[in-house]
Design a binder for these strands. Sequence first.
DNA 1: TTATTATATTCCTATATTGGAATATGTCAA
DNA 2: TTGACATATTCCAATATAGGAATATAATAA
Lengths: 112, 112
Amino acid sequence: MARTPTTHDPFNAIAEPKRRELLELLSMQELSVNEIVARLGWTQPMVSKHLGVLKQVGLVSERRDGRQRFYRTNAEQLKPIYDWVAPFERYWNERFDRLDDILEQLKKQNKE
Amino acid sequence: MARTPTTHDPFNAIAEPKRRELLELLSMQELSVNEIVARLGWTQPMVSKHLGVLKQVGLVSERRDGRQRFYRTNAEQLKPIYDWVAPFERYWNERFDRLDDILEQLKKQNKE
DNA sequence: TTATTATATTCCTATATTGGAATATGTCAA
DNA sequence: TTGACATATTCCAATATAGGAATATAATAA
């Protein structure tokens, strides 16, 4: 009876804008925590905590090397979101306008 | 210092699976609250509350007629989500494999 | 071993949440 | 006006959250 945890699935994880920013950054390149801190200007614990959430839902993967940990985006985990939202594209993309017209005509023909 | 409200933006609004289900249902057709209750089998207050969240972020629109209220999905508000997630498609869609190869070659050529 | 560096975790507070039950509001009909 | 119907809102509980500060853990170097 509470909001679903952010660590439960990608939809909840990416609701936080900072985590979306992290995913964008780490899709270009693998970075260590301190490099992320330097680039984004957040506090180190803040970076670690958001990375922790993303790791739990599999949206980033971790590689350890000495005392450093390198993270990178695991984009495949975003597919469920894409798959859910993509079918709605037709509603704002004019590319589907002609198809809509055709479907309308078919409907009319069926009624006759 | 708390999680962003569900009514703040589409990303937070659709993190809840029941609201995604509502959006799918109401994209096919306009429905009254009671019709939604009948189709989904949820309690009436639950339906009204979720519709309230979706309405606040503009994801559904409302039409009043007598004592009934008809809702339908306003898909354009999903565009920010699509726009954010679509660039990641390349990471799981094999259609981009050849493009990746070409980019790799260009990188190599640049180094020379 | 001790100090230093890199990262993660804990403790705290303020704030929202979801769902259920009960109730309120609004609209129409008799 | 009164009753019935359609929908929204309030009150409650349990639970998580994000961020800040402080601290813990782990790995390396001196």
